[in-house]
Design a protein around this nucleic acid. Structure first.
Length: 336
DNA sequence: ATCCCGGTGC
DNA sequence: GCACCTGGAT
């Protein structure tokens, strides 16, 4: 097969199993025959596993190492760790959330910038996706804040293209996109974005993450969304506050090298991308957003009605009613 | 870390 | 009235 590894002789494949906190190391150093394909296929992605870093590697490389040699004889001289390991039962967790989501209606279901300009030619459609993303950014959801209506009004007024927006008065844009959140700032950003797209990208939108991020009002969350939906090019997971919160509650992400929660959506994105198979990168967002809107809410999550409360390490741990922030210490709520 | 438009809900 | 929401900007 197409083995991507450059130097098979120096490779050490390892797995770390977390059952009972015991560490199991499996090593395979191919000599004449390739590594067993079956075992490699169990791994989510070959790139996600670190190469064995061998200190004093001469003996290891010359003698054929076995599991015993690695764990006993060479155990301390070999640093073999997978970069990350997928959390236990993550697939059951996702399936459980999918089941909950299939019966519930969340606001996220009725929105989505992917609908924006779906009847337009590609370039116009992409621009509509960008505008829709900008308008829906930093708002609770598109429906209650009139995002889709705003896009419609822009379209009906011929103001869903870089050149026309560039020529339009900012006040006109502002009135048309009202009542989306931050409509004033967004009108200003929209004018700037239109000019940039016109001058630098021929009226199209930037096709790289970096260039999208350089646009005013476009941060990581929307940049990844636009890459996913606008260009059908998945560069990363679109992590919003729901994905951030839920992944931490599930113990799916952590600060690098620690078991602590991630401190920002960006940190969550990087941590999540280390193990989540790429097939799930796009669907994870609407799935967890809907779950976060209906069940795993920021305040008082409905753990009692949650179908995965048996799999969630945070289940029933935030059920105390936070009456006030001042009362941080709540001695009566803690058991033993 | 703090601010933010403005709608919402406590 | 006041805090909250939300992701980008500073």
């Amino acid at each position: 097969m197409t083995n991507p590894e450059p130097n098979p002789e120096s490779r050490v494949f390892v797995r770390k199993k977390r059952a009972n906190n015991t560490l199991e190391i499996k090593a395979e150093v191919p000599k004449t025959e390739p590594p067993e394909e079956k075992k490699l296929r169990d791994l989510p992605d070959i790139e996600e596993f670190a190469y064995g870093k061998v200190k004093g590697s001469a003996s290891l490389r010359q003698s054929k190492p076995t599991v015993d040699e690695l764990s006993t004889g060479c155990g301390e001289t070999v640093s073999i760790m997978p970069k990350v390991e997928a959390p236990t039962n993550w697939e059951q967790v996702l399936e459980g959330i999918r089941k909950m989501r299939s019966s519930e209606d969340a606001p996220v279901d009725s929105m989505g910038c992917e609908k924006a300009g779906s009847v337009l030619p590609p370039k116009e459609r992409r621009f509509a996706v960008l505008v829709s993303s900008l308008l829906s950014s930093q708002t609770k959801d598109a429906v209650t804040h009139g995002n889709s209506g705003a896009v419609q009004r822009l379209l009906q007024n011929g103001l869903l293209a870089a050149d026309t927006i560039d020529n339009a008065e900012e006040a006109v844009i502002k009135d048309l996109i009202y009542p989306v959140g931050f409509y004033s700032r967004k009108a200003s950003n929209l004018k700037k974005i239109a000019k940039i797209c016109l001058l630098k990208y021929g009226g199209d939108i930037p096709s790289s993450l970096e260039e999208l991020l350089s646009l005013p009002g476009i941060g990581p969350k929307m940049a990844h969304l636009v890459m996913n939906v606008g260009w059908n090019n998945v560069q990363g997971i679109c992590v919003d506050t729901h994905v951030h919160r839920i992944c931490n509650r599930l113990g799916w992400v952590s600060r690098p090298g620690t078991a602590q929660k991630t401190s920002s959506p960006e940190e969550t994105r990087e941590s999540l991308q280390l193990w989540l198979p790429k097939d799930e990168w796009v669907p994870i967002n609407p799935l967890l957003v809907g779950f976060g809107q209906t069940v795993c809410t920021p305040l008082r999550p409905r753990c009692g009605m949650c179908g995965i409360n048996n799999l969630c390490p945070s289940a029933f741990k935030e059920t105390a009613s936070p009456v006030s922030k001042a009362k941080k210490s709540r001695p009566t709520q803690k058991k033993s």
